[in-house]
């Protein structure tokens, strides 16, 4: 991987983005999730789809999402991830935290300017 600043941006935020996507879209498999992210990011964010996997396993281990095997509309098998109750609570907390942090950074940058 190259581009240290991009990785730094993704770390921490990717988890939040995934949680948010699952919250609005309901259960998704990794490919659908990647597609959703690409759609929302509108090409501002290029992402290896594989990059999702560490985030997914992290969230699953925290108990914030749960994976279950299911079938796509085309009859293929896929693993669907759904937000858990704990995940929903975490999303609220993480979102608030992110807003505070973003606001703080924004203020700091405003002061600098």
């Amino acid at each position: 991987m190259s581009g240290g600043d991009r990785i730094a941006l993704l770390q921490g935020t990717l988890d939040l983005i995934v949680l948010r996507a699952l919250d609005t879209m309901g259960p998704l498999h990794a490919y659908a999730l990647a597609a959703r992210l690409a759609q929302v990011a509108d090409a501002q964010l290029t992402l290896n789809q594989g990059t999702l996997y560490p985030a997914l396993v992290r969230l699953e281990q925290k108990g914030w999402i749960a994976g279950r095997w299911g079938t796509t509309e085309h009859g293929r098998e896929a693993r669907y991830y759904a937000l858990t109750a704990a995940g929903r609570r975490a999303l609220k907390g993480e979102t608030a935290r992110w807003r505070r942090l973003a606001g703080l950074v924004e203020r700091l940058l405003g002061d600098e300017a």
């Binding site: 498999h29 990794a30 789809q49 293929r76 896929a78 693993r79």
Partner: peptide, 10 residues
């Protein structure tokens, strides 16, 4: 298994 499924979908 999950990666194989993912590749299949793409």
């Amino acid at each position: 298994r999950e990666l194989a499924a993912h590749l299949q979908l793409i």
